[in-house]
């Protein structure tokens, strides 16, 4: 379980997260929606230790992530698919996946996971020797997702996986997210595409300028008038 309490984050004088609290229970798919600049990426960066936190607490299964070195967080079972994919452009597809398993020393496990990722994403297998920088946006998203799954994480943070993708690919990516969820992986999904994010989630939070303004069952939020007006364009 991921528990964030009263989180405050600053960029210089900009107060980006103002006392944010949220919880993701084991096995849940929770969406965090909000418009551009609301603080979604900052939230995920704070969780992964990429961003200094002024105050508050972040616990993963009771362990204090704020006291954990950023590069040790993955070994606690939390993986992060960053906004903009951030695949290693000059490494091949397979090298990118192997980097996902950097902390794993058991070769047999690495090979098993590689095969599993290739079965989720056959297109990555076809292109395993291609440089990641030459993949299309959708393929890079699959690679970034596959890379994050290489250590069998218990929870995955996903930051705008649908960004910049064609409607067809957005559907494909969301169907993969649904499959991961069915397979028992806990997911915290950040999206501007509120419609899809609410459709696939169990619960959701609405973030506005650094503060959670609404939360609840995803389907209930999707029929809430304020959400429909502000985020679903209805």
């Amino acid at each position: 379980m991921l528990e964030i309490k009263d989180l405050n984050v600053y960029y210089g004088v900009i107060h980006a997260l103002k006392g944010l609290s949220l919880t993701v229970n084991d096995g849940e798919l929770v969406s965090l929606i909000g418009s551009n600049g609301a603080g979604k990426t900052s939230t995920l960066h704070a969780i992964s230790g990429l961003l200094p936190v002024a105050s508050g607490s972040i616990l993963l299964d009771g362990k204090d992530l704020l006291k954990t070195a950023p590069n040790k967080i993955l070994s606690l079972g939390l993986a992060h698919v960053p906004e903009g994919r951030h695949v290693f452009a000059r490494l091949t597809v397979e090298e990118n996946l192997l980097m996902g398993a950097y902390i794993e020393r058991n070769q047999k496990k690495i090979q098993e996971n590689l095969e599993k990722i290739y079965s989720y994403f056959p297109r990555l297998k076809e292109r395993y020797r291609q440089l990641a920088g030459t993949l299309s946006g959708g393929e890079q998203q699959m690679l970034a997702t596959g890379r994050a799954l290489m250590t069998n994480p218990s929870i995955v943070l996903m930051d705008e996986p649908s960004m910049g993708l064609s409607p067809l690919l957005v559907k494909e990516i969301f169907s993969i997210i649904g499959t991961l969820h069915e397979n028992g992986i806990t997911i915290l999904l950040v999206e501007q595409n509120a419609k899809m994010a609410l459709a696939v989630a169990d619960r959701a939070y609405v973030l506005e300028t650094g503060t959670i303004t609404m939360s609840g069952i995803a389907s209930a939020l999707a029929s809430d008038d304020r959400v429909r007006k502000a985020y679903l364009g209805q």
Binding site: P70, L74, F88
Partner: peptide
Amino acid sequence: EDKAAATLMGIN
């Protein structure tokens, strides 16, 4: 290539 992404891979 990318220090933040490398950190997310568990690299020190």
